[in-house]
Computed example of a mutant assay.
Amino acid sequence: MYLPQAWTDERECCRAASVTDEVEFVTKVQMARTMLARAFAAGIPAGRVTMDEAYGQ
């Protein structure tokens, strides 16, 4: 789940939402790369990969 940096900067808000202190801000692109790496490592093939607009681009 994507969390905006404003959330991850406010640790009390994160704790109230059950988001642990280990969760740090990452960009959507970083999240996508991590998810793809995990899928490929698990042997899941991908014919195509798409993504919605990143930050209005």
Rank of each mutant, 00 (worst) to 15 (best):
D9R: 13
A41Y: 04
T50A: 12
Q57A: 07
G43K: 02
A54Y: 08
V26H: 12
V26S: 15
P4E: 11
I44P: 01
A16V: 02
I44R: 15
A6Y: 02
M35Q: 04
E22T: 14
D21C: 05
K28F: 05
E53M: 05
T20D: 08
P4M: 12
R33F: 04
A39D: 08
T50C: 10
V29F: 12
R33A: 14
R15F: 01
A32L: 15
Q5F: 01
K28V: 06
M35W: 00
A42S: 14
D9N: 15
D52F: 01
Y55E: 12
A16D: 00
M51Y: 06
A41F: 03
C14P: 01
T34I: 02
E53Y: 03
Y55P: 01
Y2L: 04
D21W: 08
L3K: 11
A46I: 06
G43A: 09
Q30E: 15
G56Q: 08
F40S: 01
A17E: 06
M51L: 12
L3Q: 09
G47N: 02
V49K: 06
A42P: 04
A6H: 05
R48D: 04
C14D: 03
M51D: 02
G47I: 12
L3Y: 15
V23E: 09
A41M: 03
V49Y: 01
A37D: 10
M35C: 10
A46F: 13
C14Q: 12
V19T: 10
A32D: 05
R11C: 00
Y2D: 04
C14F: 00
R11D: 08
E24V: 09
F40V: 14
A42C: 08
E12L: 14
Q30D: 14
L36I: 03
E53V: 11
T8A: 11
G56A: 12
T34A: 01
A39G: 11
S18R: 06
Y55A: 15
G56W: 04
Y55W: 13
R33C: 11
C13D: 05
R11G: 01
V26L: 11
D52C: 03
E10N: 15
T8E: 05
A46G: 03
Y2F: 15
